[in-house]
Design a protein around this nucleic acid. Structure first.
Lengths: 167, 167
DNA sequence: GCAAAGTAGTTGTGAAGAACAACTACACTT
DNA sequence: AAGTGTAGTTGTTCTTCACAACTACTTTGC
């Protein structure tokens, strides 16, 4: 019944976004990554709008790292975030200003700092963990159960490869 | 028939980033998406730094849409970009200012605009297509050949699901 | 020991981007 | 012809970002 209408094979079916085709981007990993990022970041902002670590790219990771590694140095955080030191320092500024973490001079190397979580910061970390879990459940429910492991495996692999290259 | 069952041991190992574990984010789709996006966007900026459509989130897609759909309206582009009209309008401003596209009143609806590519814009679109192809080859070479189709399929599926939810 | 070079983090600055709201102009409906 | 809805612009304000210059401390080499 649809035979005469469209001859494109099943796995190469025309892929329309809002009724339009997007040229070469249709087959570009980068486009999907960037688009999904845009949506997931907005969704996360909405879920965390009322919290002090909302918006921006490194606050949540930084909060968790300080919570999990008492005495961690800013430069170690920068390594995880793939950001430079000024950017990392300013993220830490915000956490300290908000009373979520403390900065001390590192025992043994007075150039470095030792970061510690505050009770308020720890409580917030717990709250954020729950929000992340919730987002994974609610936002990514579009990924069928049978695909989840595979998708995660591929994302991790891509991430690790990209990260190695970047260093 | 299904040969995709080779279970790599890396799936079960503790997953460290720069020697640190990242708490609940280790199992969060959002974290990998956001991290890969960060890296891929930086890489793209580096590859296109000299061009007029470098940086930001919608210029490339907009350029392609205007190139492929002569007379397209800004609101149609906004639909693809998932952005609001002010944001879309300002992207178009930049393309027009740079001499890459033209704005006319839409024949038949004087509220709307009809966008057209200029020769310069078309040439740039060609150049950008080649850069995207190159990035897909060089940057995403970390994805093994045998995983590419599957990864693309999963990304498309996730994207479409997220997009549907959006509207 | 002491100068030189390297490392850790801060500050300054200027350019871009993002969200929201208010506004003009035109189209469609009744 | 009035009211409602749609298309797009402008204005404002708040962040964010990248780069460079700077201070303070540590390590190395002679």
């Amino acid at each position: 019944m649809t035979a005469a209408h469209d001859h494109t094979p099943e796995d190469e079916q025309p892929f329309e976004i809002a009724g339009l085709r997007i040229d070469i981007l249709e087959g570009a990993f980068s486009w999907y990554i960037r688009s999904i990022d845009f949506a997931v970041s907005k969704d996360l902002d909405a879920r965390m709008g009322h919290l002090e670590v909302a918006k921006g790219k490194g606050k949540i990771t930084t909060l968790f790292l300080i919570d999990d590694y008492p005495g961690i140095r800013p430069s170690a955080i920068a390594g995880v975030l793939m950001r430079d030191r000024p950017a990392t320092g300013r993220i830490i500024d915000k956490l300290v200003t908000a009373g979520l973490a403390t900065r001390e001079t590192h025992a043994g190397d007075a150039r470095a700092q030792a970061l510690h979580i505050t009770p308020k910061g720890h409580a917030l970390a717990e709250e954020v963990r729950e929000i992340i879990r919730q987002q994974e459940r609610e936002f990514f429910d579009v990924i069928p159960d049978e695909d989840r492991d595979q998708f995660m495996r591929l994302l991790k692999r891509a991430y690790m490869g990209i990260r190695d290259k970047w260093q």
